[in-house]
Amino acid sequence: MKILDILAGRTKPAQADLEALFGLPSAFITLEASESLVPTGEGGVCYKPAAGQSFAQTTEEMESLLGLGGGPIKVREETDQYGFHWVVIGSGSDTGDPQALVNQVHLVNTTLQEQGFGPQLLCSVFGFRPTSAAGSPATTYVVYLYKRGTFYPFVPLPGREQRAVETELRLGIVLAEDLKIEKDKANWMALWGLPVH
């Protein structure tokens, strides 16, 4: 931070870096090949809703854009217990095109960012499950942190608020081939009860 900003007591809101998302499709392939994990076809965008009319309009615009996307894309919206808003995009089936999913998520992001709500973006999440367990909900997540421009794996243990740290560390190394992995483990934020399945 610049000395002037410190003296003036102000922070520049952190802007989101969206381009890194396009590294995901190749990471999907790596995960399937080496860890037998396939995408569940669901991806979520998590952001902090802002006050005011312009934000309501942006949300409306985003919804209509996604609706017009056509195809078997399903969109669902949820607000979590911390007041963050999730737009969950599902291709509806395992055979869904991962590239299309990434594009949809990117579309949500650019819409928010173009309207000046880039600072409100928290993270994007993509769900994965073992190849053997077709149809079951996600067991593993890849989380993208907009402000850092980095990814990390999140593997919650079923039923409790604990995570499989060793699995996460291993996945972090595997994913590092295709994605920029968050180096500071303190930023590997836990997302309990996230609505992406």
């Binding site: 952190a14 911390y82 409100q120 928290l122 993270c123 942190l145 402000k147 850092r148 930023n187 934020m189």
Partner: peptide, 8 residues
């Protein structure tokens, strides 16, 4: 956690 991720 979330606030720090938002503010980087």
């Amino acid at each position: 956690d979330r606030l720090c991720a938002l503010a980087n």
